[in-house]
Design a binder for these strands. Structure first.
Lengths: 349, 349
DNA sequence: ATGAAAGCGCTAACAA
DNA sequence: TTGTTAGCGCTTTCAT
């Protein structure tokens, strides 16, 4: 021991953020060596290491990643672009992404588009201007400009949730078209024939649209068409499910099945039917989509299809995190298989 | 017109991100002027403006905010630190923040802590290292190191959701202690006397804890204590609400009220009671907390208290966005008033 | 094991 | 209205 290092705090008045230089001066070690210590890089003697660490901690130094990123040309950020946070589905995807990124040193940064292509373009532009390590974004439909930006960015891009279409780079998701078709087939197999559809009025929710198209294809294959359909926008999904189910049953009383575009309105419909004493699934069958946890607490399990949200997030993050190691050129397409859950609201043959 | 500007695309091979210099060369204008055009700053003649814009667009130039931020010492990012995204409450706060920040040029960046103080500290450190314009974070309880970092950062800090305690800088929220007390008073006023409590087992959810404490204070003021209480962790809140309500009623059959720590488990309890044909609110009263939209779709409106989530987000963002203009030194404390909603599950005198 | 020099891509400040 | 000169705070590279 040759005397403990002397570290004196600067006057509390100096509101200027601390720099490496401050730590350097306080510890009597060159900026370069301080930098090395703080990043655990290269060989540094244990003695200097401790001196530096002490000084940094005492001063309350927080590195400036902006300068670091500019110098190193590396940014440990992953941009995540999603349409909404209130949809419940997206926070779950995010949670999968966070979990996978946990120990990679990468940090997700979220941007929300409200299902607007122009907003998506703006968010993307903003994100790319921070030169992130990769971008994960929902859907395959984007403005031409957005697509061009992504291609030109030179970073890995993963489009998630949907595989029905062409991606810019990598793609991880399910086929909503197929999901719709499969549900139609299951419903028909169970003997239902007069089928209604209830969904959200969102022309820009391409996945919901594809599901409906697939559903109609499935019905068509059996010579059927949708007997009644309706769309809502805004408000509590649960409440809307109730109200619209009531309205639809009043309008088309001989309906024997209702397919909902998501579990929330489906749950609303289910609650309504149970209250009315309607025989579910005997007289009327019901099904939703997503496989949300909420359904577990309902009096009866609504038929649904798991949309593999967490898994999609995980895989997407894995691609971004793994790309550098594996030296991949990109262009992977991963299609997950949603599992149909008949629950208690589709009768079994 | 002296001939349209000639802009030639670089060979598609150059995967190097474009710089201001590239735009400068392509347009025959100095980097500085290009910079001015791209930021709409200073006086630039319409002719050069167009030349530059064309070149930038043709090349597909995306500015490098890292360099820009380093040079200008300004970062248009606001760090938002929250415990969870699956709690539904936090996405709503976020949505308030986003809405308020919409036209300010500021961008929220989200970090999630999973209710862990050490994780919060780490997230905060990471965020501060990007030198954001401000930080919004949930709660008043932080590690000493976290508090120190925030104080030293020199940027506006807004702690949200809770006002029961001392903040580092500004604070926007409600008093959960008071909310608990008010609910106790309302319940007692309605004539209930044998009261149970059902909540989440989260020692680090300080707001839920304070609510319970306030609730117990309220009961104590009337000479009452909680007759039965239980806590859960994990799983579907709706389902847990069902199961735990059943268990509690079996254990303490003469209970005449159950107070739930959130609306989701409350909704589960309500659904259970209705199924069992229990007279709500006659024989048993129920209340939750948060005022979530979901409740609108339930067969009966659960009593609750609105926790002003969006408003909290808005106000917090307003403080961050407004600070520079108004030259405030900070330290504002804004306490919002949650409104009690008796719904259909507390009997009226 | 440590240090010195150069420069990442942009913008503030000043000059013309 | 436009251009020039210095950095911003860090890391890379090379020297010692």
């Amino acid at each position: 021991m040759r005397g403990s290092p002397t570290v004196s705090l600067p006057p509390k008045e100096s509101r200027r953020p601390l720099t490496l230089r401050d730590v350097s001066e306080a510890s009597g070690v060159s900026e370069m060596t301080v930098s090395r210590v703080l990043r655990n890089r290269g060989d540094v003697s244990e003695a200097t290491r401790e001196k530096v660490l002490l000084a940094a901690k005492t001063l309350g130094y927080v590195p400036n990643k902006i300068a670091g990123a500019l110098a190193s040309q590396r940014v440990n950020l992953v941009g995540v672009v999603i349409p909404s946070l209130s949809n419940l589905v997206f926070p779950e995807v995010l949670s999968g992404i966070s979990a996978e990124l946990e120990d990679t040193g990468l940090q997700p940064v979220v941007g929300v588009t409200n299902y607007l292509p122009e907003k998506e373009e703006a968010v993307l532009y903003e994100m790319l201007s921070w030169r992130p390590s990769g971008i994960i974004l929902a859907g395959l439909e984007h403005t031409e400009a957005a697509r061009a930006m992504m291609v030109n960015s030179g970073i890995p891009i993963v489009e998630i949730m949907d595989v029905d279409g062409a991606g810019v780079d990598s793609v991880v998701g399910i086929s909503h078209r197929r999901a719709g078709r499969q549900m139609a087939e299951a419903i028909i197999a169970a003997g239902y024939r007069k089928i209604g559809f209830l969904g959200t009025k969102m022309p820009l929710d391409h996945r919901a649209r594809k599901r409906l198209e697939g559903f109609e294809e499935g019905l068509a294959a059996a010579g059927l068409t949708i007997a009644d359909k309706d769309f809502y926008s805004g408000g509590s999904a649960l409440k809307k499910g109730r109200e619209m189910t009531e309205a639809m049953l009043a309008r088309t009383p001989d309906l024997d099945f209702i397919y909902y575009s998501n579990d929330m309105i489906g749950a609303g419909g289910l609650l309504y039917c149970l209250e009315q004493g309607i025989d579910v699934p005997g007289r009327l069958g019901l099904a939703g989509f997503n496989g949300v946890e909420l359904l577990q607490g309902l009096p009866r399990r609504l038929a649904t299809m798991d949309s593999c949200r967490r898994e999609i997030g995980r895989k997407a993050a894995e691609i971004i995190a793994g790309r550098p190691h594996q030296g991949l050129i990109g262009g992977e397409v991963i299609e997950l298989e949603p599992i149909i859950e008949l629950g208690d609201t589709i009768r079994t043959a």
